[in-house]
Simulated scan of single mutants.
Amino acid sequence: MTTFGRRRTVWLAALIVAANGFIPAIWILLTSLKTESELMRMPITIMPDAPTLQNYVRVFVDQPILTFLWNSIAVAALSTALCIVVSALAAYALVRLRLPAPGAILSALLAVAMVPLISLVVPLFQTMRTLDLLNTWPALVLPYAVLSMPVCVMVLVSFFQDIPNDLENAAMIDGCTRAGALWHVVIPLTAPGVFTAAILAFVNAWDEFLLALTLSSRVAKRTLPVGITLYQGEFSFPWPIISAALVVAIVPVCVIIAVFQDRVVGGLTSGGMKG
């Protein structure tokens, strides 16, 4: 294949991926600006005839979406912080300490990541009920952190391997402990990888539905994905209102990715070059 052909193939693949991500989001946004009668009208129209923000008003009036939003932000942020701390320690141990069969440990982590989530629901529910943690943030923070750890550890291992031992040795000669060398030398030098792992953990916790539905039955403790289901009735699905709620749920993640775009892209690019 010629260089032009390869370039055209890459652009075509990128266009397909972009369309797969953007078209559903644009469709949801346009749906949120329609009335329910317009949405049900045939033939289907793409653009709303008379865009309205009434659906967004009802999103904040009909259900306590600010409570759902706060729960999601708190749970995702806490689980991400816990996941990154533990993953950084685990990745550092696999790279720097003389552990037996580090490759086998990474393979085991990958195997754990492939376990279907639905198979863990009953054991987690029983565990949280025994610990009296149902309908609390820790009931979600702890599982989310653990579920994201395998991917975060593998991401951080690929970055830690490129940090020369001499830098840590120099820091320890100057008085740093090994933990101090990790936090003051290794982590700053691998900031793109840390941000990449953090974004992956945060999005995983933000989007999770099954555990949030199972472990939080009280309305005041529900996260945004579960709270959005409350907008539907027993026999009705107000899609414009649900679409408006989905837009509200998408915005925080878009803001985070936009703010940390350079670091995330740098981390993904570096990881791809290493791979």
Results as ranks from 00 to 15, higher is better:
Pro192Met: 09
Ala25Ile: 15
Ala101Met: 14
Arg58Met: 12
Tyr56Ala: 02
Ile173Lys: 13
Pro123Thr: 02
Val155Pro: 07
Leu110Ile: 15
Glu36Lys: 10
Phe22Leu: 07
Ala90Thr: 10
Arg98Gly: 13
Leu39Lys: 06
Ile26Pro: 09
Ala145Pro: 14
Pro225Val: 11
Val247Cys: 03
Trp239Arg: 13
Leu110Pro: 08
Pro102Tyr: 02
Ala181Gln: 12
Asn165His: 13
Asp62Arg: 06
Ala13Glu: 13
Gly175Ala: 10
Arg222Ser: 00
Phe260Tyr: 07
Asn55Val: 05
Pro51Ala: 01
Arg222Ala: 03
Leu89Val: 04
Tyr56Ser: 09
Asp166Gly: 07
Ala113Gly: 12
Ile65Phe: 13
Leu182His: 02
Leu106Thr: 02
Ile46Arg: 08
Ala50Cys: 01
Thr269Asp: 04
Ala245Tyr: 11
Glu38Asn: 03
Ala101Arg: 15
Leu39Thr: 00
Arg178Ser: 06
Leu12Arg: 01
Tyr144Met: 07
Leu224Phe: 06
Gln63Asn: 13
Ala18Cys: 12
Ala104Trp: 08
Gly180Ala: 06
Leu66Trp: 12
Asp162Gln: 15
Leu189Arg: 02
Leu94Ala: 07
Val95Phe: 02
Cys83Lys: 04
Phe4Leu: 12
Val75Ser: 08
Asn169Met: 08
Leu53Met: 00
Ser32Asp: 11
Pro252Met: 04
Leu89Lys: 00
Ala249Asn: 01
Arg7Trp: 08
Pro24Gln: 04
Asn71Glu: 00
Met172Gln: 04
Val219Ile: 14
Met114Leu: 03
Ala101Asn: 14
Met154Ile: 11
Val264Gly: 01
Thr45Asp: 12
Arg218Phe: 08
Phe22Val: 15
